[in-house]
């Protein structure tokens, strides 16, 4: 029973890519990421002797925490074959709402709760437009990207909210005597949760099935719309949560908080091996991707590369992550062609 039937194989080879090569390629991709991470550490150590110390680790965690947190629901959404480009605007709307309510004398806890509710509603609107009306998520979330930022602007105007309670300031310090940023600790907890859900539960399995073959998923009893809707709500919720963290760390909030971060979030997910076409990617890959981005940012900052110039690096990595799977296929094709020529010549 377990012996492969060779006569069946031609059908196999007519397919562009088998799962084995996909699994192998994703394993290879993650190994490559780990190698890249080590290289980025060596590079950092080479440009700055102070790079390899715990402070760098702390600041990288602090600077990258929000983006990393938002990358987790983004990963799941992209695996289902959709996208959420409104994440940074959601973060900004949450930060602005928090600032507005606090300035108007609201209790800080109540204000935070309202922010989270705003996030849930924002995510739900995305989800409804995508699942109930069947609109393409890229268009919907570009729309809400502008919409949520616009609302943030109305809420807070050109004001900058400051003067948050002193305890909130702690969030920009390490946890206790460690060198771990709160953001990073929260991210690690979320990585575990998202990793278990995506890789070990029926819901996670369904997420992959939706991304690979939505109709089959539906025909197999997967509640495709419900899962997509829920993912958007979770995304909205975590973006609002990231907005609160961001505000407390900066000790201020403005309507332009986090402008443009959505591209970093997408870049991290794609660089982590998540396929923009859906159906592929792992939480582990995204985790390593976060580590690489964090380490690169730290080393570039160490050699005084401006934030603007750093975005060039982000852009290049994004391109690389989209290019490499395609390039790999082309290389395989060229090699096969070459081998055929050699065989024909001999």
């Amino acid at each position: 029973m377990a012996t492969p039937d060779v006569s069946l194989m031609p059908d196999v080879l007519e397919e562009p890519r088998s799962l084995n090569t996909m699994i192998r390629s994703s394993v290879r991709w993650e190994s490559a990421l780990i190698v890249l991470f080590v290289i980025s550490l060596i590079y950092g150590w080479w440009v700055s002797p102070y790079f390899l110390n715990t402070d760098t680790f702390f600041f990288a965690g602090l600077n990258f925490g929000e983006i990393a947190i938002m990358a987790l629901p983004m990963t799941m959404i992209i695996i289902t074959g959709e996208i959420d480009l409104s994440v940074a605007s959601m973060l900004g709307l949450s930060a602005s709402t928090l600032g507005y309510l606090f300035m108007h004398g609201w209790n800080i806890w109540l204000a935070m709760a309202i922010c989270l509710i705003v996030g849930i509603l924002g995510g739900a609107l995305n989800g409804l437009l995508v699942t109930r009306l069947g609109l393409p998520s890229i268009a919907v979330t570009i729309g809400t990207l502008t919409l949520y930022r616009g609302i943030a602007l109305i809420v807070l105007g050109s004001n900058t909210a400051v003067g948050f309670p002193a305890w909130t300031n702690k969030l920009s310090l390490p946890i206790g005597n460690t060198h771990i940023a709160y953001d990073f600790a929260i991210f690690v907890v979320l990585v575990l949760i998202f990793g278990v859900v995506l890789h070990m539960t029926p819901v996670g399995r369904s997420i992959y099935a939706i991304g690979l073959q939505p109709e089959t998923a539906y025909f197999s009893g997967v509640r495709v719309k419900r899962i997509k809707f829920t993912l958007y709500v979770i995304s909205g919720f975590l973006c609002a949560f990231a907005g609160i963290l961001y505000t407390f760390q900066q000790s201020s909030s403005a309507s332009d908080t986090g402008v443009g971060l959505e591209l970093n979030v997408v870049a991290i997910a794609l660089f982590g091996g998540v396929s923009i076409f859906g159906g592929r990617g792992t939480i582990f890959g995204v985790f390593v991707s976060v580590a690489i981005f964090g380490s690169l940012q730290a080393s570039l900052t160490a050699i005084n590369v401006s934030a603007q110039a750093q975005s060039i690096v982000t852009g290049c990595l994004l391109l690389v992550s989209v290019l490499i799977p395609t390039a790999r296929d082309s290389v395989a094709r060229i090699r096969a062609q070459f081998r055929r020529r050699v065989a024909e010549a001999s």
Partner: peptide, 18 residues
């Protein structure tokens, strides 16, 4: 191909999908 199977998923995962 479109409705019965997730073509790129493993055999055991397809068999257990429902």
């Amino acid at each position: 191909r479109q409705q019965g199977l997730v073509m790129q998923m493993a055999i055991d995962r397809n068999a257990s999908l429902a």
